[in-house]
Design a binder for these strands. Structure first.
Length: 351
DNA sequence: TCTGGGGTCCTTACTCTA
DNA sequence: TCTGTAGAGTAAGGACCC
């Protein structure tokens, strides 16, 4: 035995999830909002189109949750305070938190604006102490609370941080999977969305434990080798995926939902030209060129079409992006009112 | 009167070429 | 030369995530 892996060296992954992040940052700026039901989303006007990005825990008591239309949230909770999304401010606060996390371990994976994974295998001290220290530092520096999960892999760490919210700290080991993870709804597994959940229910699978009980072969048969294998490992709590410390964008896109569905080509064309310019200028600013331009159209009935064109040479030229986008648009018959227009550039290369 | 925006990844179908 | 097919690249759609 080489003894390369010895006891005490088991991998330890920590997942940090900021509590109701956007709403909490707004409450920092306006302390009079603290304790009130706050909803952050869209333009902040709940009579206009838009969805909830974050609801404070007080607002959640009224049944308001993220991804819900603002108009529905207003009906459920007329006394809620509605605020527009101020992405720059949240990004600023997020950056400070990420910098702090990096001081605990340089092996950090950034997951969106309010989450991160840290590999704390090499960090001295017991897991509960490390978890508490991180929570304390975040609170002292920002006034914000977060929920932390620690486990042998990313998947279990994420489930752990989700178990006690807000302001929770949960540590899960392989021996806890049976009692703490298997009773949870299958939907709690990352990668299981509403469609998969419904399909599973139709097969009599409701909990993560049900999933584990069906076994690997059954899952591969129902979901294909790749996703089936993933579901099995996820249900067993053994799914391993690496901490990705560097991220490069694969596409840049902009889209716009009209306040009122557009019936005329001119409105759609104007929006398309604007979005194409925005995409191209973002690419220039970030130093990327793209080979494929895709146009997305969503009709009033929510039917969504995309048309794409791959260029011979990569580009970041506004005129080329716009011209290509219009060529794609020309392949779509606008026989219904248009709800949304989008432009995406993919096949990115650093300039 | 519903259902944002910015992404990633996967599957499937099609076309072209070797 | 004909035919079948494998593989790459492209296109389209869908599920999912924050």
């Amino acid at each position: 035995m080489s003894g390369e892996i010895t006891e005490g060296e088991a991998k330890r992954i920590l997942h940090v999830d900021m509590d109701a992040f956007f709403a909490s940052v707004e409450c920092l700026r306006r302390p009079e909002l603290k304790g009130r039901p706050v909803v952050v989303g869209g333009s902040g006007d709940p009579t206009r189109r838009g969805v909830v990005s974050t609801a404070s825990y007080e607002a959640r008591r009224f049944g308001v949750h993220s991804a819900m239309p603002l108009r529905t949230a207003l009906k459920l909770c007329p006394q809620c305070v509605f605020l527009p999304v101020d992405y720059n401010e949240y990004a600023r606060v997020s950056l400070g938190i990420k910098k702090m996390l990096l001081e605990t371990s340089p092996l950090m994976e950034d997951v969106g604006i309010d989450e991160a994974y840290l590999d704390i295998t090499g960090v001295a001290g017991p897991s509960p102490e490390i978890g508490r220290a991180i929570k304390d530092r975040v609170l002292k520096a920002t006034g914000l609370t977060c929920s932390v999960g620690i486990a042998p892999n990313k998947l279990l760490a994420k489930i752990a941080s989700d178990l006690r919210k807000p302001d929770g700290l949960t540590i899960l080991g392989p021996e806890d999977v049976r009692d703490s993870v298997w009773p949870l709804a299958a939907r709690r597994l990352p990668g299981v969305g509403p469609k998969t959940e419904e399909f599973l229910k139709g097969l009599g699978v409701n909990t993560i434990g049900d999933l584990a009980a069906r076994g690997r072969e059954w899952l591969r048969e129902k979901f294909g080798t790749s996703f089936g294998q993933y579901l099995y490992e996820a249900a067993m709590g053994t799914h391993e995926s690496p901490i990705v410390t560097e991220w490069k964008p694969k596409s840049v896109s902009r889209e716009e939902t009209f306040e009122r569905d557009a019936a005329d080509w001119q409105t759609v064309a104007r929006a398309l030209a604007f979005l194409a310019r925005d995409v191209a200028s973002t690419m220039r600013r970030e130093g990327y060129t793209a080979r494929t331009i895709t146009v997305k159209i969503r009709f009033e009935d929510f039917r969504t079409l995309t048309r794409a064109r791959t260029l011979r040479q990569e580009t970041d030229d506004v005129d080329v992006v716009r011209k290509t986008a219009f060529e794609c648009l020309g392949r779509i018959e606008l026989d219904k009112r248009v709800r949304l227009v989008g432009v995406r550039a993919s096949g990115l290369k650093a300039r």
